[in-house]
Design a binder for these strands. Structure first.
Lengths: 250, 250
DNA sequence: AACACTGTCCGATATAATCGGACAAGGCAC
DNA sequence: GTGCCTTGTCCGATTATATCGGACAGTGTT
């Protein structure tokens, strides 16, 4: 691991929705490096376009990140194939649809369609990350990962509790994952947020590997009314996308 | 400039729509560095999430770029970036500054700063709408809309006359829009209200699309005195805001 | 089965990142 | 206005570290 890149990564990680601007000195003390080193890092990143230097010589994230992100998204076939199917789902149910992949220890949204209902789920945005153990998407992605991978993720992130329904026991989680594999779908029954339910299903590519998951997020009261229908719709959508990615059962 | 970051930047620049995957050796020869150095760079970037290592040990762009890009986009809004620039303008000229976007058929003010002069323009408020064909803001926004959109707007709203200077002929309006595109700014010479002149310029975002317009409103007698200066100031301000929104001419 | 490719790992060397300090430029209080 | 902070930037010496060539293991091909 190149330590300069490591430091650059830590530096970029400082920027989030609540901290959009950093001065050299602030960043230096936060990262526990010399002010001059922070300056070297930040001015270099700025010259490269990864940071943006304001007039007051502070720094924000740079637009090159957007450019790179766009080329990534544009060249990911998953999105291209999934999007129209997601649109159909959204049109039919007017609920929020998510597409996610597993990145390191967490699920990352790579596409999203908002529901149009008055009471709708709106807590996430593209590129956002969520814990794998307590979301329909995350649990699906975990269920189709190797056992070592699951162990590693649990080791790294733990099983933090978000609601009374969050699975915090490792054994219980493993059993839940086994059940998901058997059934081919996963529920999130208010495990992240109260009043929020989801149902998710795996997306396979042409090699037969699960590479992503799709989910529908629905307020709990609506979800319980027609749970089976939502589940069938998501499973069907996942199957369609999988087929478009070259997956077929022999 | 930290050379490790420089190299990382060059490496990431290799990834575009036509070259979405790179192997270590490929990248090394392309960048003219040792294979092992390329490996150090790429595996580090992969551990940090900026690259994604495929099953065949090749590399694609990483999802962390999407995450960072999204926080950048979420935290840079038109208003936030435009406001300080508008304040500078207002401080310097003491005239009314407007920021507007196109919404359906009309321009909508999304920000406004009042001039402090004794005789000043005060006819609008935030969120107010105005006809697109007879204001500097509106004409700018029209000029950078598609032809069909312009046609649709004219069809819907017509070209009602407000003063003797209002453009009411469709062909004349289209020619005016073409001129605005060529020059990069628009005037309103007492076309809504007698004694009121404006100059407006387009604001681009990171995709190169015109998403808004900024204008200065000035009593006619003052405007004619130093028209060119006002125009230069507005064009310059629009350019600054555009840059802050990620726009840059290649 | 041998070969030609990969990507990865390792250890020595020379390079480049780091750090403290000095400097200039703003902002603020008095 | 003046002086005192604070900030970001620059510089040069030192030490830590990125670099490189070479060796190795794994794959797929001929």
């Amino acid at each position: 691991m190149l330590q300069t890149l490591q430091k650059a990564g830590e530096l970029l990680a400082l920027f989030d929705r609540d901290h959009t601007e950093w001065g050299v000195r602030e960043a230096a003390t936060k990262l526990k490096i010399a002010k001059s080193s922070a300056h070297d890092l930040m001015s270099s990143l700025a010259k490269l376009g990864f940071l943006n230097r304001t007039e007051e010589n502070r720094y924000r994230l740079g637009w090159r990140l957007v450019t790179l992100s766009e080329t990534l998204l544009a060249t990911t076939e998953l999105r291209k194939e999934a999007h129209p199917v997601m649109e159909e789902l959204a049109a039919q149910y007017q609920e929020t649809i998510h597409l996610a992949v597993l990145d390191d220890t967490q699920a990352v949204y790579v596409d999203k369609l908002e529901g149009r209902q008055a009471v709708r789920v709106e807590l996430t945005s593209l590129g956002a990350r969520l814990y794998a153990h307590c979301s329909a998407l995350g649990k699906v992605l975990l269920a189709y990962s190797s056992e070592e991978e699951v162990k590693r993720i649990i080791q790294t992130t733990g099983l933090p509790r978000f609601t009374e329904n969050t699975i915090t026991d490792e054994e219980e989680l493993l059993q839940a994952l086994a059940k998901i594999r058997k059934q081919g779908y996963a529920y999130d029954m208010e495990e992240i947020l109260l009043d929020l339910c989801c149902v998710g299903a795996p997306i396979y590519n042409y090699t037969g590997r699960v590479i992503a998951a799709i989910s529908m997020s629905i307020p709990a009261y609506r979800f319980r009314r027609s749970q089976t229908e939502y589940r069938a719709a998501i499973v069907r959508a996942a199957k369609i996308i999988s087929e478009r990615l070259g997956y077929y059962v022999t």
